[in-house]
Amino acid sequence: MGRYIGKRFLHSIFTLFIIATVTFILMNLMPGKPFTGEKPIPEEIRKNMEAKYGLDKPIHERYVIYMKNLLRGDLGMSMVHKHRSVGSIIKERFPISASLGLRALSFALIAGLFLGIIAAVNHGKTWDYVSMIIAVIGVSVPSFIIGGLLQYFVGVKLRLFPVTGWESFKHTVIPSFALGLGTLAVMARMMRTSMLDVLNQDYIKTAKAKGLPRRAVVWRHGIRNAILPVVTILGPLVAGITTGTFVVENIFAIPGLGQFLVSSVNQNDYTLIMGLTLFYSLILVTMNFIVDILYGIVDPRITLVERKE
């Protein structure tokens, strides 16, 4: 186990290094420059500004400087938010995105799995159709439409929840719902397919033939085996949903990381692009690692350690 973790750790470092390098190169190939503004800047002023941020140096020199700083844990200062370091932006904004993401994910997981299981168990009956209609709506209606509609009808017309902001529990309800709905649908459909597949297996028939109660069949033999594919996508899902989502955060004016993922690219904020990409990659790599470990727990047949002959 220890050796496996060590190996995975080295792999992860290498992955992050590759990501950092590729992002650095692609970012510099992107059209536009950080200080290109709506009002053109006189030549000498632009030169001074570029010199201040080291942008006057050739790309390979800048790459070496960036990597050296990165090793020291220094992600640099944002080029647009002049007084904020990339580290502080992530430190301040990530907890909010993570909080929103985890709320949405919990809701999606619980409701999604429930709908999926109900649908599979009642295959071809009313509950199956109800669940799948909800799932189809969730998959096909984008979050900005759901978010906008909920904001207007539940927020403005019914005045049940606040329209924007992130202050109290009440503020979190609509955004979490809007963000979670799509994931809920994915979960429900996946769980239903996987569950149907499992329920047709011979061992389920055996369990039934043994005279086990239906509940025990579904719980002990059905769900445990059917949940594996869901666990697989959980890793990337957690990474994606907790590191900020632009659309929902934008509609509800939630001060999370999402806005920076988009604005940093639009504004050619090089240091912020690098910082956010690496941060996202780090979370993704970590989550995938955790999922691998979880596999072993959910399904004891999967083993992480290579057996020695």
Binding site: P31, G32, T36, E38, P40, N266, Q267
Partner: peptide
Amino acid sequence: TTFKDRLQ
């Protein structure tokens, strides 16, 4: 093109 690129 992108906003920044148009300016550039």
